[in-house]
Design a protein around this nucleic acid. Structure first.
Lengths: 196, 196
DNA sequence: ACCTGAACACCGTTCAAGT
DNA sequence: ACCTGAACACCGTTCAAGT
């Protein structure tokens, strides 16, 4: 494994183990078997290393979505699996999820991250279109609908992770809330064709 | 103004000016006219100071929501205003918004923050119930529906702020996406009563 | 009760130097 | 081309001491 990949893997492992504050260049170097400033030979700075982790994760999520899309499941099932994939990713790697989808530091998408973000969204959008074609989702602009669905699952995950959506308030969890969302969208489809 | 309030105000101003990384205790102390470790006499540590800023902001947002709820506008209009308030808050104070709704550090809500979170959600939920009563939103569990709506606006804002929802992809902005969401929920209401 | 200045450990980053 | 060790500036936190 090249040193660059070792550094990215070490940073990802440290994120899982102790959150972003655990990712010091000294710890990364130690875990990768190099000195604490070797990373500067491969990345501009610490943020660039974290950005590389995010790009790799997003590419991985895109690949997982592609698997789902190419499966033989019914469209509605594919959508559920796609949404569940996002939820599971957050459950397994909360700090990396936060980096991936909630960190404004990499708002100007560049290079690998931009590429990964595009292919990830395209996969998701394709599944949404399949659902529309199958009559499971309303016939509105598919890109906007995809953005809306993804924003909803992301918002639910985010609010729960940040403790703002506690069950104490009587709130449902992420999965039941999403199920309601999908059910309401199906009803909207029905409501838009009263003559059917 | 008490020193404690000065510290919170200074931290909030620094967040607006330069993001979280600009909020060093030395800078906070300087802005409040005290030494760099005076904050420790009022807050356990830096995180506790940031948490106090979040609690104050959430209380402010709750007060703004209360104004909307008590206004004479129609329910649908109140909902739009409530959602717009969240969007505007992020536009004016992105770093504080991030702290308020996306920071997992304060996931264990305590004291002021917990109180503020509850009253904020209650106000929002009341408006959602008014919309249901007026037939503008589907008759599903109001708390879940409120959570879903808030998660959607938060997810849209978050993804846009973190650069993951660029227009380049053909995506609509936060406001048009939300308008679609509300429109689809109205259609769902219609689809659930085919006999009306 | 509230504050200060010095000190400590730690970190990101830079630089001169090594192979 | 890739890496290292020393050094710098900065920060959160602690502590002894001041009023």
């Amino acid at each position: 494994m090249t040193t660059e990949k070792k550094l990215v893997a070490a940073a990802a492992a440290l994120l899982d183990a102790g959150g972003e504050q655990a990712v010091t260049l000294r710890a990364v170097g130690r875990a990768a078997g190099v000195s604490h400033n070797a990373p500067y030979k491969h990345f501009k700075n610490r943020d660039a290393l974290l950005c590389a982790v995010a790009a790799a994760d997003l590419a991985e999520m895109a690949a997982a979505l592609k698997q789902v899309r190419q499966s033989s499941a019914k469209p509605a099932k594919k959508l559920t699996q796609a949404l569940k994939g996002v939820i599971d990713y957050n459950a397994k790697h909360p700090a990396r999820y936060q980096l991936l989808l909630n960190d404004p530091r990499f708002a100007t998408l560049e290079g690998d991250l931009k590429q990964a973000a595009y292919s990830h969204f395209d996969e998701f959008d394709s599944i949404v279109r399949e659902c529309q074609a199958a009559g499971e989702l309303p016939d509105v602009a598919h890109i906007t609908l995809s953005g809306l669905l993804f924003a909803t699952v992301h918002g639910l995950i985010s609010l729960e992770a940040s403790g703002r959506m506690k069950r104490e308030k009587g709130l449902a969890g992420v999965v039941p809330s999403l199920e309601l969302m999908v059910k309401l969208l199906a009803l909207a489809k029905k409501g838009s064709q009263p003559a059917s």
